[in-house]
Simulated scan of single mutants.
Amino acid sequence: MPISYLTDDDGVRIRVEGHDLPGRRCGPAGEGGHGDVHVGLQARGDPSDLLGVHPGDAAAALWSVECTVLAGPAGPDLRGRYVQGRPGGRFLYLSWGDVDAAGTFAMFRRAKLMLDAVDPTVLAAAIRAGTLVGRLGLTDAAGNPLCAAVRPPAITWSPGA
């Protein structure tokens, strides 16, 4: 369904609200133990460029980024510093890592928040409202940091105010 009201100047804020963080210590299968787990939103093209790094035992984690919305052949195409992937397969990376005594973040896994899984009517409403909100738990079924491709129902997307 083409969205004809888009122009090259349209934008939307994406707000990711994470809850149920896994804690500072975990031992994902095959990876050994991790002792000072943190999570941040990764910038495109640079795994070391992270926004809003939160400790794994935080009560909640919040990230908010501005995106440009362009009309693409398959519908709205979100672009921005934190938006990864190709048109039709865009996503946000949440990077999990250990932080050492010097404050260096060493990534050990990532979660892909799949933007192509946002219902088109929800995305259209979010564009009109100016904000797209994703809410998700950040702990997997084994009690470790959430990883792999994340789509509904593991994440709930809605228009925000």
Rank of each mutant, 00 (worst) to 15 (best):
residue 1 M to W: 03
residue 7 T to E: 10
residue 11 G to S: 11
residue 12 V to L: 13
residue 13 R to D: 11
residue 13 R to S: 06
residue 15 R to A: 04
residue 15 R to L: 09
residue 16 V to L: 15
residue 21 L to A: 05
residue 23 G to R: 02
residue 26 C to F: 01
residue 27 G to I: 00
residue 27 G to W: 10
residue 29 A to D: 10
residue 31 E to Q: 14
residue 31 E to A: 09
residue 37 V to I: 14
residue 38 H to N: 11
residue 39 V to A: 14
residue 41 L to T: 06
residue 42 Q to R: 14
residue 42 Q to N: 02
residue 44 R to C: 01
residue 52 G to T: 04
residue 53 V to G: 01
residue 55 P to L: 05
residue 56 G to H: 01
residue 56 G to W: 10
residue 57 D to C: 09
residue 60 A to P: 00
residue 64 S to E: 15
residue 65 V to L: 15
residue 67 C to K: 05
residue 68 T to Y: 07
residue 69 V to C: 12
residue 69 V to A: 11
residue 71 A to N: 08
residue 71 A to R: 12
residue 72 G to E: 04
residue 73 P to K: 07
residue 73 P to T: 12
residue 73 P to L: 12
residue 74 A to I: 01
residue 75 G to K: 07
residue 76 P to E: 04
residue 77 D to W: 13
residue 78 L to T: 02
residue 79 R to P: 00
residue 79 R to M: 05
residue 80 G to C: 11
residue 81 R to C: 00
residue 82 Y to D: 03
residue 82 Y to N: 03
residue 83 V to M: 12
residue 85 G to V: 06
residue 86 R to Y: 06
residue 89 G to W: 07
residue 89 G to S: 12
residue 92 L to P: 03
residue 96 W to A: 08
residue 99 V to F: 08
residue 99 V to D: 09
residue 102 A to D: 14
residue 104 T to A: 14
residue 105 F to I: 02
residue 106 A to S: 14
residue 106 A to C: 03
residue 108 F to S: 07
residue 111 A to L: 04
residue 114 M to E: 09
residue 115 L to K: 09
residue 116 D to G: 05
residue 117 A to M: 06
residue 117 A to R: 04
residue 117 A to I: 01
residue 118 V to R: 02
residue 119 D to L: 02
residue 120 P to K: 07
residue 123 L to A: 03
residue 124 A to V: 04
residue 126 A to D: 08
residue 126 A to L: 08
residue 128 R to H: 10
residue 128 R to P: 00
residue 128 R to E: 15
residue 129 A to L: 03
residue 132 L to P: 06
residue 133 V to L: 10
residue 138 L to W: 11
residue 138 L to S: 03
residue 140 D to R: 10
residue 141 A to K: 11
residue 142 A to H: 10
residue 142 A to N: 11
residue 145 P to I: 00
residue 147 C to T: 07
residue 148 A to R: 14
residue 150 V to H: 13
residue 151 R to E: 15
residue 151 R to T: 15
residue 153 P to Y: 15
residue 156 T to H: 15
residue 157 W to C: 05
residue 159 P to T: 02
residue 160 G to L: 13
residue 161 A to Y: 12
